[in-house]
Amino acid sequence: MNKAELIDAIAAESKLTKADSKRALDAFLNAASKTLKKGDKVIIIGFGTFSVAKRAARTGRNPQTGKTIQIKAKKVVKFKAGADLAKKVK
Rank of each mutant, 00 (worst) to 15 (best):
T35M: 09
F47D: 00
K54S: 14
T17F: 13
F28L: 15
K18F: 11
A53T: 11
A53G: 11
D40V: 03
R58P: 02
T35V: 12
N62R: 07
K37W: 00
A19L: 09
G46N: 13
E13S: 15
R58E: 03
K38L: 04
L16Q: 09
K22L: 04
L29S: 12
R58V: 05
E13D: 13
T59Y: 03
A32W: 04
K34P: 00
T49G: 01
S51V: 00
T35S: 14
A19N: 08
I44M: 02
R55K: 10
A27H: 08
I45Y: 14
R55V: 04
A53M: 07
L25P: 01
N30F: 03
L29F: 09
G46S: 10
T35F: 11
G48A: 10
F50L: 15
K22Q: 08
A56Q: 09
K22Y: 00
K41E: 15
K37Y: 05
S51W: 03
A31P: 06
R61L: 13
A32C: 12
G46C: 10
R23E: 07
T17I: 12
A27N: 08
F28R: 12
A24K: 01
R23N: 05
F47A: 05
K54T: 14
K37N: 04
A27L: 14
E13V: 06
A56T: 12
K37Q: 09
L29R: 05
V52R: 02
E13A: 14
